[in-house]
Design a binder for these strands. Structure first.
Lengths: 251, 251
DNA sequence: CGGAGTGTTGAGGTAGCTCAATGTGTGTGG
DNA sequence: CCACACACATTGAGCTACCTCAACACTCCG
């Protein structure tokens, strides 16, 4: 769970970053990309379950998630844990931790992950020298907050089935924007316990509700992949107003 | 509820801003304050219940809350509503809304409020010309996210009594940092319905749990003010690890 | 083969829900 | 001055969504 098996290696140069080509991301000028590349400290590879940022850590770096999934969480002293949000490729990892003096949360790799690491100290530098990038960092921070707002609303107002549906829809749309969905099917690496911690439900009730929705034909799971059998219906369950997924910055 | 009774008037010049003198806020250079003052569009006075930002609004300005309380919320189509967080003097209002293309939430005045309004279009300007301020805006965004993380953890993991205690402690500490607390007593303008919407509980259960904690001697209410009778005990109920409240930027 | 991690299911308890009645303070119009 | 409406708080009664405890199955791995 806590092993920090960081295996440094040379990553792809940012100018040739395959992530950057996806339509989910806004274009950057060559200047901006060169700045990002110069700022990049290392390319880290971590196994599933590794701690990316520890709660209370004071020297956390800033990362961009290059591949894999991760999640932010907060624990109470008695062991209860809330998963705050999930991180998918292209998301900033540890912005809050790198701006505030100490991390108020933990971040853990959900699958094997690749991270582009930027030294904490150079974030200030970026704000001074690259206003366009600093604006986009603030934008990405606001976008993350917006996702957490959605989760809080789910946990505070929706029942178990609605919460599951809302989470699936949200993950489906985010994965889709990254081109990770084919025929409504995408990799789904969450354990039931992690699901429960994200939904604010007990493990048992999560499992039962999950099974019920599966039997009701909402989705199917096989080989670590999840298929939404009727995305429209699922979306209607949580009465989403469909928000545009506009291209976002990639730092 | 929705009347926009904005009565423009000359506010205090930012250089002489009384809020800025409080120890809760970091010092700024004269240059920075002058920039903020030049950017300030107007000083708005709104009555309790007024909409500051409407859900979906696309041209929301950025504000600093000068006096009074407000809250951010998100509504579901069937009327359920989640209060995401409360805003106290010195907090940025509408950062998310002014960065993203449309507000994903609403913001409502809880009491009469005074707002320092900054035009949305000049936020970009600020990032270009004032790196120190843009860094601090990002910092304040992260701080707000951290508060929402705490609320999400509360709603997802704590029972009704713990949620109330956590909310009271959090508000008490924030009000205290602003010098708004005397003898553990501070203004408390929330209705039970608003309390319920913030806690993710029904109105009835909120009222019953509230009464139980009051009878148990945790706090008392009179004249719109709330007194924490045993802050230590209350804090222990939610097992907070006491975080420093370091001075924060005031834009 | 044994143990650990994960998922499923049943049984029974309770925290929190809905419905409904009542009280209380405040503003408004006659 | 009273009558009335309205918003807000309180309390009781009964229901259920979700909880905990517990047993069992499956897979992976040493």
């Amino acid at each position: 769970m806590a092993t920090s098996a960081n295996q440094s290696r040379i990553g792809v140069p940012c100018l040739a970053c395959p992530l950057r080509l996806k339509p989910a991301f806004k274009d950057k000028t060559d200047d901006e990309v060169r700045f990002i590349q110069a700022m990049k400290m290392e390319h880290r590879l971590l196994p599933a379950g590794a701690d990316i940022i520890q709660p209370g850590q004071e020297d956390a770096a800033l990362y961009t998630l290059f591949s894999g999934w991760a999640f932010r969480y907060k624990s109470l002293p008695d062991g209860r844990r809330q998963i705050l949000n999930f991180l998918l490729p292209g998301d900033l990892v540890g912005l809050q931790a790198s701006l505030l003096s100490a991390a108020q949360h933990g971040i853990e790799a959900l699958t094997e992950v690749e991270l582009c690491a930027f030294p904490r100290k150079r974030v200030w530098d970026l704000f001074v020298r690259m206003p366009s990038l600093s604006y986009e960092i603030a934008w990405l921070g606001s976008r993350e907050e917006s996702l957490i707002d959605e989760n809080l609303t789910s946990v505070g107002q929706r029942n178990a089935a609605e919460r599951i549906a809302a989470l699936l829809i949200s993950l489906h749309r985010r994965a889709d924007a990254l081109g990770l969905v084919s025929e409504n099917s995408f990799r789904f690496p969450l354990s039931q316990q992690q699901l429960a911690d994200a939904l604010g439900l007990s493990l048992v009730h999560t499992s039962k509700t999950w099974a019920k929705l599966r039997r009701a034909g909402l989705f199917s799971v096989s080989g670590g992949r999840l298929t939404l059998l009727n995305p429209r219906l699922t979306a209607r369950m949580v009465s989403l107003f469909e928000r545009e997924l506009e291209p976002r910055p990639l730092i």
